[in-house]
Design a protein around this nucleic acid. Structure first.
Lengths: 233, 233
DNA sequence: CGAGTATAGCTTGTATACAAGAAATAACTA
DNA sequence: TAGTTATTTCTTGTATACAAGCTATACTCG
């Protein structure tokens, strides 16, 4: 959430369009490098170019879209190196959230954390990666919230969402689901026990390992399946 | 830099306007709570409403401006609590940059760091807060760059710029300038010595203390001088 | 006289029109 | 035939026109 959605329910059309396009990017419907033609999108969504353009500008600010003057908008293609950097920061933000959460956790927040953790466990037992993926987000978000630093929580969530398409691939890796859950378990125990530094360290490695694994993944595949992979600069 | 300025020198008009308005916000020419009338700005800058609007949307995404549907744009007024949260995160980002810089510093980067530090020293000796303020930014940016994590550096810089108007007030505090410099000095030595954890800790407290001091400052003043202080939500 | 409501004016949000630059294609020359 | 240049076409960037909603003012009714 980058300050646009104020939670009051009312949204400009450009903001709805932004979310719609963001969703398509996250799901891979618009793969990295995809050209985003303003007129095309306008007719597709049944609006004029103006709100589409405003949506693209917002996505550009969020880093999901690259706009070069007079040369149109592309879905940002994140090269491996930058992706690792993003995971490296994500790991630090998660660690910070965990450390603060261990110090500041309220009973209600603890309950929410345990509930999210329990839900993940069920998805693991069912061997359902999609459900786990969704519940995993809940789990992490409950930690962000428990940090009692709303700004940090927003930033963490924003980066989390930005990494979402890449994170999703993770859970296809063999046994990753089980390992992920057991890592969660250790994190939960550390937070509940109030061991901030330990929670931070566990979360850091939990996230960073994803970045490393992902780097391995794309190193083996030379290219993503449907990505034209245009150079960003 | 939120992905808009690609460094190629070419910028849309809306991006120039964004920077111009951001500058006015940073310098306090447009104080928090200030209404930003699109038509007014358009005539003032000699353009139509369209690029102004696009600039405001970008500033909204960056969190410097609040836009409520059909109710116009305001300069975001950050309440003390949120400001502390932002400083808390800033401290962590700086710490992370420092830790990585200590590990990864190249000779060229070391030279740049020392040059920036030396320039700060001169400003301190001259007792020139404005010069120090400007050079201080150079100093911190040289650390961001030395982290060798470009994404982190961008995020740190973005937050740094967002806190700029508040940080500026800091240096008016008695002796803050001298204390700031001596803190810098310790940081530099830790980084050059390759002591990552120490650099991180020094930077964290260097930044966090600003947040705390600022909280004190605005706690004493019940209100900022020229700020209508509209509730953000 | 006060409160509530209607109306007028003004600002934002969206559509459309127009201008300018980039890419692609076609024509021309060596 | 290949390379270069001119032209055409298409897309973006900006201006303007129009519609819709909020605010404030004035008016009416209790």
């Amino acid at each position: 959430m980058n300050g646009s959605n104020d939670g009051s329910g009312q949204m400009r059309r450009s903001e709805q369009l932004r979310d719609a396009i963001e969703e398509r990017i996250a799901t891979g419907a618009y793969p990295p490098g995809q050209r985003l033609d303003e007129t095309e999108l306008a007719t597709e969504f049944g609006v004029s170019r103006t709100p589409i353009r405003e949506a693209l500008i917002q996505l550009n600010s969020a880093g999901l879209v690259v706009m070069r003057p007079r040369r149109g908008a592309l879905v940002a293609s994140i090269e491996p190196r930058r992706l690792c950097e993003m995971f490296e920061l994500m790991a630090e933000l998660e660690a910070m959230c965990g450390r603060l959460a261990a110090r500041r956790l309220s009973p209600a927040e603890q309950e929410r954390l345990l509930a999210a953790h329990g839900a993940c466990e069920q998805a693991r037992n069912a061997g359902d990666p999609d459900a786990y993926f969704r519940l995993n987000e809940q789990f992490h978000q409950s930690i962000y919230g428990a940090s009692h630093n709303e700004f940090l929580a927003e930033q963490a969530l924003q980066l989390h969402r930005r990494l979402r398409p890449y994170r999703r691939l993770q859970l296809r890796v063999r046994d990753r689901l089980k390992v992920s859950f057991s890592e969660h378990d250790a994190v939960v125990r550390a937070i509940v026990a109030g061991e901030g530094d330990r929670a931070a360290e566990l979360l850091r490695s939990h996230v960073v390992v994803q970045g490393e694994r992902f780097a391995d993944l794309i190193a083996s595949l030379s290219q993503l399946p449907s990505a034209p992979t245009e150079k960003t600069a």
